[in-house]
């Protein structure tokens, strides 16, 4: 069957795209986390100006389609700044900033869901606000946020394919290239779909394992009567 042979021929090339896809996902998640946590803390504990700025950032990055953001950065912003970045870098930054916007909201919700007493008790034993945030609030909030945060993985995984539009050599791009070579779109695209589904499933297993390890009984339960 031509379909099968086309798939076998393309497989090595497509599979090597997995590292690109996972790289995109991992780096974007990391960027999103590195920005999201401080921004979430700032929206809860910061002054009004910072809160407004972050809210605007979150609004714009959550409201725009991925494709528009990619085009905006790739064709507009980075050329304007004169920066010559690779499509992979641009894709990572764009997806990372977008993830940061979502993660800010996730962590903000988690921080707010902790009862006020945790901060009061921390202050009452003499901790500064920053010590309280770092030692008491964040360890609990991050754990509470895990279920919502782990959603970011499948989202980023599927969104990574949109970087096709700016030429990043991830799985979908490579699949399309092989399709133009072999004229077998159905088998090859289905193969790509299966790869994505497996990556999705595998990633979720790892995340669930992580959730189990981080589990602390009774976390987040409120004692307020």
């Amino acid at each position: 069957m031509e379909g099968l042979s086309a798939v076998l021929e393309s497989l090595p090339y497509i599979l090597s795209g997995i590292s690109v896809t996972l790289g995109l996902v991992a780096l974007s998640l990391a960027l999103g986390f590195a920005l999201g946590v401080p921004m979430a803390v700032a929206t809860v504990y910061g002054n009004r100006i910072i809160v407004k700025i972050i809210r605007v950032f979150v609004f714009i990055l959550r409201g725009l389609p991925n494709l528009v953001l990619l085009f905006l950065f790739y064709f507009g912003i980075f050329p304007l700044l004169g920066w010559n970045l690779s499509p992979f870098a641009i894709g990572t930054i764009t997806l990372g900033l977008r993830s940061a916007a979502y993660q800010t909201e996730i962590f903000r919700g988690a921080i707010l869901s902790l009862e006020e007493g945790q901060m009061l008790a921390a202050l009452s034993v003499g901790m500064t606000k920053n010590q309280a945030i770092w030692n008491i609030i964040l360890p609990q909030a991050l754990r509470l946020a895990l279920p919502g945060w782990s959603n970011e993985y499948p989202i980023l995984l599927t969104d990574s394919s949109v970087t096709y539009a700016i030429g990043v050599a991830e799985i979908l791009t490579r699949g399309s290239q092989m399709v133009t070579r072999t004229y077998q779109p159905m088998p090859i695209y289905l193969t790509c779909a299966i790869i994505f589904i497996l990556l999705n499933w595998g990633g979720m297993q790892i995340i669930q394992w992580g959730e189990k390890k981080a589990y602390i009984p009774g976390l987040g339960r409120k004692t307020e009567t």
Binding site: G117, Q118, A121, A122, S124, I136, Q140, G218, L219, T223
Partner: peptide
């Protein structure tokens, strides 16, 4: 100054 609260507010984690 030591303080003990009605709802204890132990650090849950």
């Amino acid at each position: 100054i030591g303080m003990v609260f009605q709802n204890f507010y132990l650090f849950d984690h």
